[in-house]
Amino acid sequence: MPAVKAPTSLRRLFDEIGTVDQVGIEERVAKFTTRSLKKKSKVFGLRLAVSMVDLTTLEGKDTPGKVASLCQKALRPHDIGDIPPTAAVCVYPAMVKHAKKHVGGTSVKIASVATAFPSGQAPLKTRLAEVHAAVNDGADEIDMVINRGAFLSGEFGRMQDEIAAVVEACGQSTLKVILEVSELETYDHIRAASFLAMRVIRPGDFIKTSTGKTSSNATLGNNQVMLEAIRDHFLATGVPIAMKPAGGIRTAKQALHFLIAVKETLGDDWLNNGRYRFGASALLNDLVRQLEKERTGAYQAPWNFSEATEGY
């Protein structure tokens, strides 16, 4: 890792990266929701979204059996048709070895949250040990949480050093850095945290909106702030960073709006699951429902698609 000198104040960082106007950016993203996708372009978008899903279960009651059925769902989202597999399954570290049995060697990656997810409030040593354990068990991707306490108290150096330590612990595994945007609250904070994270991660690593465990999660607004940060970072350094909104994206329509934002902000190079993911569980079934509607011309009976992720 190149030695990165952390800015000493948020104000100095904004002088460098610029600020975000809340009203303006929300106006911009409202325009994405007026795009109208028909026929082939709709099917393309829906299939693309399926291929970008990190199919997630993060519950206290997760069992090897539940993870097994989640993995099968990820590999084959629907019994008929040619719907592609999802990008990954996302589980707690204890479940990685169980997921490995089902998706190991397939195109579906194993992502594991680590670093005392979702709060991150554990000693760094403990967090790193968790990352090591997940990687050793076979996690292809690690979803870490940033130290929001460090960010909000202005200890940017500490926040970045911790991310850098996790990068090292990841070894060959891809890293996704969760900013937990609802706890950062303002768009300015989200932009600042995005830059701080991007400066210490590798090309192809992700920044991610949320844990899905707080009141508000991914929105088009904070997705846009992060996409624009990725764009500015890429244009300045040539380093492409990937993006993962997570939590709260439940419908196919929402997912398409997020993808339109990607298409019109970062362009074609980000329209693949190496550069963009959805952290979601219920979303997959709505995508499948809409694809089946496009394929057959009619909505299928509701019992064909379980509303609850328990049904996967």
Binding site: K38, P203, G204, L259, E264, G267, D269, G274
Partner: peptide, 24 residues
């Protein structure tokens, strides 16, 4: 990530026709 992702030396975004909107 280091080996699978290429850096784009041109550093320009591609707004191409990968995903065209159909007439609506």
């Amino acid at each position: 990530p280091k080996t699978t992702s290429k850096t784009n030396p041109a550093r320009e975004l591609v707004f191409g026709d990968l995903w065209e909107y159909d007439p609506a």
